[in-house]
Amino acid sequence: KLPPGWEKRMSRSSGRVYYFNHITNASQWERPSGNSSSG
């Protein structure tokens, strides 16, 4: 399961899957890690 705020999306241009955070408006190709504590 993804960390809070993150969701899986697909890029229309490349067709690749990326991850988008609707809370911080951040996007990245790598899967966000939800196990590590923020610090």
Results as ranks from 00 to 15, higher is better:
1 K>A: 13
1 K>E: 14
1 K>T: 11
1 K>D: 15
1 K>N: 13
2 L>E: 11
2 L>T: 03
2 L>K: 09
3 P>L: 04
3 P>I: 02
3 P>V: 01
3 P>G: 05
3 P>Q: 03
4 P>Y: 10
4 P>K: 07
5 G>Y: 06
5 G>V: 02
6 W>L: 01
7 E>V: 10
7 E>T: 08
8 K>L: 13
8 K>W: 07
8 K>M: 14
8 K>Q: 11
9 R>H: 07
9 R>C: 15
9 R>N: 02
9 R>F: 06
9 R>V: 05
10 M>E: 10
10 M>Q: 12
10 M>D: 05
10 M>P: 06
10 M>L: 15
11 S>Y: 10
12 R>S: 15
13 S>K: 15
13 S>H: 14
13 S>N: 11
13 S>P: 14
14 S>N: 12
14 S>F: 07
14 S>C: 14
14 S>H: 09
14 S>G: 08
14 S>Y: 07
15 G>H: 07
15 G>E: 04
16 R>Y: 05
16 R>M: 06
16 R>P: 01
16 R>W: 05
16 R>F: 05
17 V>M: 08
17 V>H: 08
17 V>P: 09
17 V>E: 09
18 Y>F: 09
18 Y>K: 00
18 Y>T: 01
18 Y>V: 01
19 Y>L: 01
19 Y>F: 07
20 F>N: 02
20 F>V: 05
20 F>I: 05
20 F>E: 01
21 N>K: 02
21 N>Q: 02
21 N>L: 03
21 N>Y: 03
21 N>D: 03
22 H>W: 13
22 H>C: 12
22 H>I: 15
23 I>P: 01
23 I>L: 12
23 I>F: 13
23 I>Y: 10
23 I>R: 06
24 T>L: 06
24 T>V: 02
24 T>N: 05
25 N>Q: 14
25 N>A: 08
25 N>L: 13
26 A>D: 09
26 A>R: 14
26 A>Y: 09
27 S>G: 04
27 S>M: 15
27 S>Y: 14
27 S>F: 15
27 S>K: 13
27 S>D: 03
28 Q>R: 04
28 Q>A: 04
28 Q>I: 05
28 Q>D: 03
28 Q>Y: 03
28 Q>W: 04
29 W>P: 03
29 W>E: 05
29 W>G: 03
29 W>D: 05
29 W>R: 06
30 E>S: 08
30 E>V: 07
30 E>F: 07
30 E>Y: 07
30 E>W: 08
31 R>V: 10
31 R>H: 13
31 R>F: 14
32 P>G: 01
32 P>W: 02
33 S>E: 12
33 S>A: 11
33 S>K: 10
34 G>Y: 13
34 G>H: 13
34 G>K: 09
34 G>M: 12
35 N>L: 12
35 N>F: 10
35 N>R: 07
35 N>V: 11
35 N>I: 12
36 S>I: 12
36 S>R: 06
36 S>H: 10
37 S>D: 11
37 S>N: 12
37 S>Y: 09
37 S>G: 10
37 S>M: 10
38 S>E: 11
38 S>Y: 09
38 S>I: 11
38 S>H: 10
39 G>M: 11
39 G>W: 09
39 G>H: 10
39 G>A: 13
